Computed example of a mutant assay.
Amino acid sequence: MADIQTHTLSTDGFASKSQVGDFTLDVDALGDDGPTPNQVLVADYASCFLPAFRVGGQQTGNDDLGKIQIDAEADLDDDDDLSAIRFDIYVEADLDDETLADITERAEGICHVHAALREGLHADITVHGGADIQG
Rank of each mutant, 00 (worst) to 15 (best):
Asp78Met: 01
Ala72Lys: 05
Phe23Lys: 15
Glu105Pro: 00
Gln69Phe: 08
Gly129Ala: 06
Asp80Thr: 06
Leu50Ile: 12
Ala74Ser: 15
Thr24Phe: 12
Thr11Lys: 09
Lys17Leu: 14
Ala131His: 10
Gly56Gln: 06
Asp63Val: 02
Glu108Asp: 04
Asp96Met: 08
Gly34Thr: 04
Asn62Leu: 10
Ala52Met: 02
Pro35Thr: 13
Gln58Arg: 11
His128Pro: 14
Gly109Ala: 01
Gln5Asn: 14
Ile85Gln: 08
Phe23Pro: 11
Asp132Cys: 00
Cys111Ala: 11
Leu121His: 00
Asp78Leu: 03
Ala107Tyr: 00
Ala131Trp: 15
Ser10Glu: 00
His114Pro: 00
Thr8Arg: 05
Thr6Glu: 09
Gln69Asn: 10
Ile125Pro: 07
Gln39Lys: 14
His122Ala: 15
Ile125Tyr: 03
Ile133His: 06
Arg54Lys: 11
Asp44Pro: 10
Gly57Thr: 00
Ala29Trp: 05
Ala52His: 02
Leu95Ala: 03
Ala115Val: 05
Asp64Lys: 07
Ala84Cys: 12
Gly34Tyr: 03
Glu73Asn: 14
Leu100Asp: 08
Thr36Asn: 00
Leu25Asn: 04
Asp71His: 08
Cys111Gly: 02
Ile133Cys: 04
Ala43Thr: 11
Ile110Glu: 00
Gly129Arg: 14
Thr104Val: 06
Asp33Leu: 12
Gly34Arg: 06
Ala101Lys: 04
Ala52Ile: 13
Asp44Trp: 05
